[in-house]
């Protein structure tokens, strides 16, 4: 059998950088899909970039002085200001370039924060950055809670998930009782040229979106769902699979808004039930059938609205 079988050969992947801009030796947890998202974001951009990062998991795992995992120029100042620091880097380079003090070369400026640093404490700075029109790609790596400080709820924690500050109890049997903040819609409401959701499970889609954002003449916002085995209480080896389920159940749809035009990037023929996604996640272990159904109804409703938005043609 073996000699008749045609031997498979490793062929290069198209449009895929083999460089690693965040080097091994970083201290992310086993199976961290967030650092995987970062890996793909960096590969999509390449070396001519500068990153401003918010305090959080990615900052802590990558920069214990005197060590750094970064192979790109990188700055961390505080928790809530990645967007503002990136605005400053962009403005500084703009002035220096205009005055001929640095080469007239395009350098991509990226701001990156977790869901806490983006949807909560860094929300204002992000809104300011978008409104002022800085040419910055803002990437939110969303693991749906304050994982770095020990799994506290953020406004990006999904409904029904337990965290250390949204526990289940007799009076609050559902865990977190409010819906996840819809950041891409908020970014879109600013009239931002480009905004999208992404997930490292769909790495080609993710890289394509980052490259699209890079070409935009203005701000862009990419919201990346990043499975956190530690915080979600799932086995590390299933980090990729849960990303797939989040998308295929419609809990976290992949879509983009380009100059006001909404577009679904992955449209399953039929959505899987949300219970497929909840199953096996420790943070959802307490959910009963009734509450699961309530969430299912809302997910379906939101999905239908999204499909509708994405089918509308923008006026010419």
């Amino acid at each position: 059998m073996a000699d008749t079988e045609k031997k498979k050969v490793i062929k290069p992947i198209k449009n895929f950088s083999m460089e690693e801009y965040i080097s091994s030796g970083h201290r992310a947890c086993q199976g961290c899909a967030e650092v995987l998202a970062v890996r793909h974001v960096l590969k999509a951009i390449g070396p001519d970039m500068i990153m401003a990062m918010a305090t959080g998991c990615m900052e802590i795992i990558s920069s214990p002085y005197p060590l750094t995992s970064w192979n790109i120029p990188w700055i961390h100042v505080a928790f809530e200001n990645a967007a503002a620091v990136a605005s400053g880097v962009e403005s500084g380079l703009k002035a220096l370039r205009r005055k001929g003090r640095i080469p007239n070369k395009d350098v991509t400026i990226v701001a990156m924060g977790g869901d806490g640093g983006t949807t909560d404490i860094g929300f204002q700075a992000l809104s300011g950055m978008i409104e002022r029109g800085h040419k910055v790609i803002y990437v939110c790596v969303d693991n749906e809670a304050y994982m770095n400080t020990g799994i506290q709820r953020s406004s990006s924690t999904p409904i029904g998930a337990t965290t250390t500050t949204s526990p289940t109890g007799k009076l609050e049997p559902e865990g977190k009782s409010t819906w996840k903040k819809d950041m891409v819609a908020i970014a879109a409401a600013h009239g931002i040229p480009y905004t999208a959701t992404a997930c490292p499970t769909f790495f080609t889609d993710l890289q394509k979106k980052i490259q699209k954002a890079k070409e935009v003449n203005g701000p862009s916002y990419i919201h990346i769902l990043s499975v956190c085995p530690t915080g979600w209480r799932v086995p590390p080896n299933k980090a990729i699979e849960y990303g797939q389920l989040a998308v295929d159940t419609g809990v976290f749809p992949l879509y983009e808004v380009e100059n006001g035009a909404w577009k679904l990037n992955r449209k399953p023929k039929e959505l899987k039930p949300v219970s497929d996604y909840f199953k096996g996640q420790g943070r959802y272990r307490h959910l009963d059938e009734r509450f699961t159904q309530q969430i299912q109804d809302k997910v379906t409703e939101r999905w239908n609205k999204l499909v509708e938005l994405c089918s509308e043609k923008p006026e010419k």
Partner: peptide
């Protein structure tokens, strides 16, 4: 507290985990 050697965290071997 600037670090001038890019990617020097590779001296930390996480394989021990």
């Amino acid at each position: 507290g600037v670090i001038t050697e890019p990617g020097n965290a590779s001296c930390y071997h996480t394989g021990t985990w």
